[in-house]
């Protein structure tokens, strides 16, 4: 029992990332009808927003340490982040420590801007072109974006730690009445899951309870009719694209402590997220979320030593295998709607 709970927990963080990326992919596909291969790059850029902000916050300059001189008699120097001078030493250190969560505030406008520019500048021109062209141009864009990041940040992963309060693990099992020491879980993963849940909830609430969301949902169901009603859906869809970019970006920001960001993390996640979208059902938001978590957890179960002993290598292929089986038996995916890219 405890082993099962542990695996479910282990699957949650990856599942959350899958769900968030798949959610954005589905929003874009469902509203704009565009297959966006650059969505993984948005996730990656989000992660690098966190890197950037933590670097910006730690920008420092040399200050003479009063009262101490080196052996040549020159004053001894010390690096002091500018932020210490603005907020004082203790608050400044706290801000640097909390760089990753603070990056959320930084990433939201950046990601929305990138999303809107992408949609207006490029994607807009591909609405009427075949899906293959959309895949190709966004694939090219993904390469460009990741190469730009590689140019400025290098090819190596950049460790970006969580706030020190969240570093380390706690005994989750003891909390829910198991023997102590059975289910140990890192704090940050729980934070990530909670964060993902909040974002997903917010997106659904937004679509459910605002007029904007209502129009978007109607547009997802039947674009032409909504267009006929004289509602300017194109503008709303631009905003939708910005929103989807922000969701992917935030997923990336918060993922940095779990996996040090590198320039190709987006592509790695994208391939799997596409599989997730297809399993969930192209165009179904609940399907994307459900499939994201399901596959994340399934992957974690398949990585158990006991399972690998029976079917070697299953952990490597489980997601693809599930996708293939689902696609062949339920072509519309778990919760796909009729008529969405049937062929």
């Amino acid at each position: 029992m405890d082993a099962i709970i542990l695996q479910i927990l282990n699957g949650l963080d990856k599942g959350s990332a899958y769900a968030l990326i798949a959610l954005g992919l589905t929003l874009i596909f469902g509203t704009l009808g565009v297959v966006n291969f650059a969505h993984g790059a948005l996730f990656m850029i989000g992660a690098f927003c966190a890197v950037t902000l933590s670097r910006l916050l730690s920008l420092s300059h040399e200050v003479a340490v009063p009262g101490s001189v080196d052996f040549l008699g020159n004053p001894q120097m010390r690096d002091v982040p500018y932020i210490y001078e603005i907020f004082g030493e203790s608050l400044g250190a706290g801000i640097i420590d909390w760089a990753v969560p603070l990056s959320i505030l930084f990433a939201i406008p950046v990601m929305i801007a990138i999303g809107v520019i992408m949609e207006r500048g490029l994607i807009k021109h591909f609405y009427k072109r075949p899906h293959a062209d959309q895949i190709l141009v966004t694939f090219g864009l993904a390469i460009v974006l990741q190469e730009i990041i590689k140019y400025y940040y290098g090819a190596n992963p950049i460790p970006t730690p969580a706030p020190s309060a969240f570093i380390g693990s706690f005994d989750f099992g003891a909390l829910i009445g198991f023997e102590a020491g059975q289910i140990i879980y890192p704090y940050w993963r729980l934070v990530y899951f909670a964060f993902a849940a909040v974002i997903i909830g917010a997106v659904f609430a937004f679509l459910q309870f605002t007029t904007f969301g209502m129009v978007v949902r109607a547009g997802m169901a039947d674009r032409e009719t909504v267009g006929l009603l004289g509602i300017n859906i194109d503008k709303r869809f631009t905003i939708m694209f910005g929103l989807a970019a922000a969701v992917a970006g935030l997923a990336g920001v918060m993922y940095t402590p779990i996996n040090s960001p590198n320039y190709h993390m987006g592509m790695d996640f994208l391939v799997l997220s596409f599989v997730v979208v297809v399993v969930g059902g192209m165009g179904s938001l609940p399907g994307a979320v459900l499939a994201g978590f399901l596959l994340g957890i399934l992957e974690s179960f398949a990585s158990m030593r006991e399972v690998i002993a029976i079917i070697p290598g299953i952990n490597q292929v489980i997601i693809y295998l599930v996708a293939i089986i689902i696609l062949l038996t339920r072509p519309r995916g778990l919760m796909g709607r009729k008529g969405v890219m049937e062929d």
Binding site: V275, V278, P312, G313, Q316, A323
Partner: peptide, 22 residues
Amino acid sequence: GIYFSILTLAFAQMSFALAYSV
């Protein structure tokens, strides 16, 4: 369509993963 692309991608990634491990 896109489903075909994803299926072929899935098969290839599976082959890659298997070739690397089992």
